[in-house]
Structures are given as structure tokens and as C-alpha cells.
Design a protein around this nucleic acid. Structure first.
Lengths: 243, 243
DNA sequence: GAAGTGATCTGGTCTGACCACTTGACCTCT
DNA sequence: AGAGGTCAAGTGGTCAGACCAGATCACTTC
């Protein structure tokens, strides 16, 4: 019994979490348009049946994310998240209400295809001694696994090491944000990504180019690795948009 | 009197803000190493002479930023921000304690040089009708201004429109994050960036390429625009590191 | 020694009060 | 009429203290 299911550890969202999630969803979905004013904290507390501190915590976190502006003495207003939110918002845009947003997915894959090769090139340029081993370990783990989903995880580990090698804090944080968006969508993307994640030799080639310290070769190898699945997804979206 | 000074609107940080800023600084500076446990909320409230809700708000915001992990029943622990923080953290890394962090600045300029041309190319590919006018307005404003700092702001407005034209939410949010990091450093970078921001014709050329709908030309034009200042800064850093 | 168990840490949540700021209606003097 | 001052009401900001709930670990018990 229990099958193969790993029994998720019971998502026990805290009250402020719940409130945060709910209002963020409303903003992202556009039901709360930019410029709109939120009900007062007391009112929200009353309506949602929670205490005011819980509301406050949620609103402050939204303010930090750039989704609302809260000013003492005045009502809290919704901001235009496309204008003011940072890359950390991406996860909530990619999977609103559990469904993959295709236009967001498109832009994420575009960004990945553009940034991946650059990071690989930087890694080739500055890679330290330990990197070769780390890359090899990640590829072996990837190879030893069959499941498309866990293979994607191993691929992420591989890239994680590449980003380490690139030694650029901006690209590092960028990767973290993209990964945070990508990770919850692993299953939804399993089919599309299987083709990429199965090409173990392509990973090997990339690792070799990086280890050899040849930026151009690494750039090319990364492109060869990332392009097919990206293109496949983009054309698939394109066809969906036609219909 | 009052000179030309715009009289900043008095930074009145709230108590939770203050606490947040202070602990974030400790984490970023490395004084609170990854794995370290924070004092309990009650203890922190006592030591910092503020209420517990204030502490909570700050800690929850830190958790959202990926800087700490807070679990009920156990102490709050510091996470490795290089591993878990998103791009939104960049501003606090670029200007810790008011001074520019050169290695962070290097990676930001690297990222800018890499992403800028791509965004320009995308804009050329998908630009709508209104873009040409917006770009022109931004360039005119830039041209009409003399101050290197405000010129940088106009340049940001210009890029803002380019990013709009690229029509990619991932790149949009990425730009927002980079801009948020860049903006507070405008003055510190004024000297280095003056050379770039004075080259009005380069902006014109880029705008033309985008408006013409020629991605390759736009890519090249953007590189021509961004590369000199980037290179100048990188070699400057390099020389500083030698000394 | 291993399993249970409870004291005591930790964060999670609520209540209700008061402070500080913004706004806008209203009032007043010019 | 218009410019300025005043004040009530609504909003977020902050606090104190209490109690709930999960995690830990030393201690008991078998």
C-alpha cells in the first residue's frame, strides 16, 4: 500500500501565509487592478476572520514584493506588478491557480536559453579545480535515473554547479529566482523537458567544454543542449495559439 | 535659497523596517553565518527594545527573501543567501553600508551587457506601433539634460520602454530587479556612466534599429552602446585589485 | 538499552488598546 | 471668493500580554 506516492508533508500554511497567498492571487489575476485601494486592515481582519497582526504581516510582505503600497494615514493601494515587482514574483506568475501560464513559460524558457550559454561560458572562463568532479557527479546521477521528473532535478543540480563556476552573484541570484519558478512546474513540464533531460551526451559535452576552459565551446554546447526543448515548446505554444 | 536640492521626503523607517534592515545587514555582511541560529523572537524584542510583532514582521520578510528559515517549535536559522535568495536581494548586496561593492557591481554590469542586447533584439522583433515615439521622447529628454545623474535616469526610462517592447515578463521582472539595484547606486556610478550616457547618437542608433524591426542590428547597436562603459569599469576594477 | 513522557524551549495567533499620520470638511479671516 | 487654519475621523504603526501549537531533550520507566 501507499503505492509510490511520497506522502507530502501536509502543507500547513500559516494564517498570514494564507492571507498573503490569497491577496497576491487576486492582484496577479488582475481582480485587484493597479490603483485600486484595499479595505482597511481592520476591515480585512474582520472579513477574513483573522487578527489584524496576521493581516499586517501579509500586507507588509506584499509591499516588499512590490505588489502594494502601504502608507500610514492612507489606504493601501495596489501597484502595477509588471512595473514594480522583481524576478522573485515569477513563481506566482508561472503557476497561478495550479495551471501553467503559457506566455510566462515562454518567456522563462527564452530567458533560460539566453542566459544558460552565457553562464556556461563564464564558468569555462573562471572555473576552479573542483568543478569538473561536481559536474561529473551530477551527470552520473542524472544518467542513473529514469524518471523524467527526478532527471530534471539532477539537471538543475548540474546547472547549479555551472552557475557556481561562473562566479557572478547577479547570475547566481537570477538562477535562484528562475529555479524557484521552474521547480514547482517540474511535473507540468516533464513531457516537454524529457527530450532535453534524456540527452546525457549533451551534458557530457557541455561539462567537457567547461572543464577545458573554452568559453566559446561551452557557449555552443550549452546552446545545443537547451535549444531543442525550447524550440519544441515554443512551436507547441504557437500552435495552441493558432487553435 | 534651497539651492537646487530637491529636499528628500525624510526617510522615516518604521520599527519593523529598522529591524529588518539591521538583521539583513548582519546576514549579508556574514556576521550571521549560514546555519547560525537567531535569538528567539522574545529575546530579540527585549534586546532591541521593540514589541514582538515588530520582530515577527521583520523575520517573516526575511524568510520570504530566503535569508532565514523559521520553523515553529525550533529556533530561526540563517540560510545561505547565495543559495536561496532571489534577484530581489541584489540592491542590498550592491550597496551594503552605503559603499559600492565592486565585485557585485562587476557582475551586475556583466549581466546588463549580456541581457541588454537580447532585450533590444526582442523589442525589434515584436515592437508595437507606439514604441518609436516613446523611445524618441526618452532620448530627447536625455539630450536636453546635462547632469550625469539625471541623464542616467532618462537612460533608464529609455530602457524601460525597450523592455516593454520585448514583451517578455521574465525579462521585464529581471529588468525591474536590476533597476532596483542600480537606482540607489546612480550617484556612485555617475563618473563611470557619464561616458555612456553622453553618447546620444548611440541611443538614437539603437532606437532606429529597434523601430526598423531588425533584431540583429538592434543587438549590435545595444552592444555598441553598453560595452564601452562596461569595459572601462571592469578594467578599472581590475587595476584596483592589482593595487 | 529502548521506548515513553512531560517540562520547557521555540514560533503562531489573538485581543484590545493607544499613537501617528493623512485626509477632507468646515470654519475663519483677508 | 479665496487662502489659510482647525479639527474630527479614518488609516496604518506599535505595543503589551496572554494563550495555542509544534519541537526538543532530559528523565523516567520498562
Amino acid at each position: 500500500m501507499l503505492g509510490g506516492m511520497p506522502l507530502q508533508p501536509v502543507a500547513r500554511r500559516s494564517v498570514p501565509d494564507e492571507v498573503f497567498e490569497q491577496i497576491v492571487a487576486d492582484v496577479v489575476r488582475g481582480e485587484l487592478a493597479p490603483g485600486a485601494t484595499l479595505p482597511s486592515e481592520r476591515r480585512l481582519a474582520e472579513v477574513l476572520r483573522v487578527s489584524r497582526p496576521a493581516i499586517r504581516e501579509a500586507l507588509q510582505r506584499m509591499a516588499q514584493a512590490g505588489l502594494v503600497e502601504v502608507r500610514q494615514g492612507d489606504a493601501t493601494t495596489v501597484r502595477d506588478f509588471r512595473r514594480h515587482a522583481g524576478l522573485d514574483l515569477l513563481p506566482r506568475l508561472l503557476l497561478p491557480r495550479g495551471e501553467l501560464d503559457l506566455s510566462v513559460a515562454r518567456s522563462v524558457l527564452e530567458a533560460r536559453l539566453h542566459v544558460g550559454p552565457k553562464v556556461a561560458a563564464l564558468a569555462a572562463e573562471r572555473a576552479g579545480a573542483g568543478l569538473a568532479g561536481d559536474l561529473d557527479t551530477a551527470i552520473s546521477a542524472l544518467e542513473a535515473d529514469d524518471d523524467p521528473v527526478t532527471r530534471q532535478r539532477h539537471a538543475l543540480t548540474f546547472w547549479d554547479h555551472v552557475v557556481d563556476g561562473a562566479d557572478s552573484i547577479a547570475f547566481r541570484l537570477m538562477f535562484n529566482s528562475l529555479r524557484a519558478a521552474y521547480e514547482p512546474a517540474l511535473e507540468a513540464l516533464a513531457t516537454v523537458m524529457a527530450a532535453e533531460v534524456n540527452r546525457v551526451p549533451a551534458y557530457r559535452a557541455l561539462a567537457t567544454a567547461i572543464t577545458a576552459g573554452t568559453p566559446d565551446a561551452a557557449h555552443t554546447a550549452a546552446e545545443h543542449l537547451l535549444k531543442p526543448a525550447t524550440d519544441a515548446f515554443l512551436t507547441a505554444i504557437h500552435q495552441l495559439e493558432q487553435a
